[in-house]
Amino acid sequence: MLGEISFALANGEVAAVVGPSGCGKTTLLRIIVGLDRDFEGSVVLPAHGRLGVVFQEPRLLPWRTVEDNVRLAAPQAGETMLTALFATLGLSEHRRHYPGELSLGLARRVALARAFAVEPDLLALDEPFVSLDAALVERLRVELIELVSHRPTTTLLITHSIDEAINLADRIFLLSRSPARVIAEVPIERPRGTRSAVELAVIREKLRAAATHQ
């Protein structure tokens, strides 16, 4: 399914992997976090290799509260840190709720909180905003930027949306159709949040051109 792919992330860098649906992005993520072992090659994780993963579906334990879901994944997390994390993600009044009582948007936030609470050496996000409405996606994007800037975290964002990638990432890897390989690597110098519409448009065009000339 995947072709020859090789790339490296710098410490604290946010990278986005963009590609057409069905090109094997999720498989790539599963290989990196160690869930899929049927591949040739090697994955080198940071020294301690603590992982925070946000799957496409929230994958929360329905029988544990929001707070317990986070604490079970991150037993070392302190109260101050959790309080701040829940506040940033707008989850403060939902700590005692069960996942079944939450909307999909809130459940996604809990999944984000869980991944951040482990203070990961690598944060892997698989289409974390898929099937949410546009306004909510925008809010979550802002929250994610806030979290990453608060505690610089090496992050790999898997997405089909070029817009999502250019808003969030320091570097973008563009994948081809299956068998996927990296057809373009686009660094973005200016920090997140200060990028002007013109700059974003230029990058978007660059990526579009690369995608059509593959």
């Binding site: 976090v33 160690g34 869930l35 603590r50 992982l51 925070g52 993963v53 799957f55 994958r59 079970l72 994944a73 991150a74 869980r114 482990v118």
Partner: peptide
């Protein structure tokens, strides 16, 4: 899988 990646 969730439990595995979070090293529970």
């Amino acid at each position: 899988e969730m439990a595995a990646v979070f090293r529970m």
